[in-house]
Amino acid sequence: MFSLKKSQMFALIISSLIVGYTTTMINAKADSGYTVVKRMTGNNANVAYHLANNSKNTYLWNGIHTKAKANLRKYKNYSWRYYGKSLILSHNSKKSLYYYIQGITPNGNEASKIRGIVWHSYLTPGINPNYKQLNNIYYRYFNTDSEYLHYVQKSPSQKLTREVLKLFPNTHLSIQLTKAADGASPWAWASPRVDGYKNILEFPTVQKYFNKRFYKPNISDNTRFKLIKAGLDKSYSQTKRNALTQYQIGIYYYNNPHRLIDDEAPGFTIAIPE
């Protein structure tokens, strides 16, 4: 008799859970009655956002807000690429702004299939600040020096970057110079030029060691650093490097070559703002 009651109770609990789960999903998906008022396209698609509150249910919808595609709360370490496209939806006489976004995985993969529209106030500007979980993030998504520095300091993928920065202890890390220089430009070594900067130093003899596509992709970051340090010590002593107090450094590195494209050349550039 006890066994039967226990079995019935168990079935009742399971049934309740299923009903509750189904109701939750329907509540998320059956939010119809939205109409598109206006579609807009901006100029800048290289903008990253993260969730303003990653413990709150935040639904990503299809383009006409008839189907919930994902609950972004489940992707706590993702960032979200803004496509430069948005739309205004009307629901119950209230208008709301939505952004088209696509997931950027913690490993820097921008080909995530998670994409759709989300209410703009669920997002806040910038890469996800869980930097210890992030690797090989596209440097153009960073907006401030401190944001980029924190990523470099904490990301497992940025060990080589951290070690190289120690070779220039009095030189300020600049995301603006990083973006302006695109790392080292191998085709411009003979006459380096970076808009907005002067007295440019590019150290061509060591730049190749940054690029896994062009120099021994299977060697370790430790080996790469030893090669970089030896090359710098030979051409530009530590005493000279310590004296670069008026200079800024732009630098980027991917320890996984999946992010590299033909016109990218990881490396570093040192210069003085004009």
Rank of each mutant, 00 (worst) to 15 (best):
Y75F: 10
Y78I: 02
S79L: 00
W80R: 07
W80E: 04
G84R: 00
L87P: 04
H91Y: 12
K95F: 01
Y99T: 02
I101L: 09
I101Q: 03
I104D: 03
T105H: 12
T105F: 15
N107T: 00
N107K: 01
N109W: 02
E110R: 02
A111Q: 06
S112C: 02
K113S: 09
R115M: 03
G116H: 05
H120Q: 05
L123N: 04
T124C: 00
G126C: 07
G126W: 12
I127Y: 04
P129C: 04
Q133H: 01
L134Q: 12
L134R: 00
L134E: 08
L134D: 00
N136R: 08
H150S: 15
P156R: 11
P156K: 09
E163Q: 06
V164S: 07
P169C: 03
H172M: 12
H172A: 09
L173W: 12
L173N: 13
S174K: 06
I175A: 05
Q176R: 14
A180Y: 10
D182C: 08
G183N: 11
A188N: 12
A188M: 06
W189A: 07
A190L: 11
A190T: 13
A190P: 12
P192G: 04
P192R: 09
P192E: 09
R193V: 12
V194K: 07
G196S: 14
I200H: 10
E202T: 15
E202M: 15
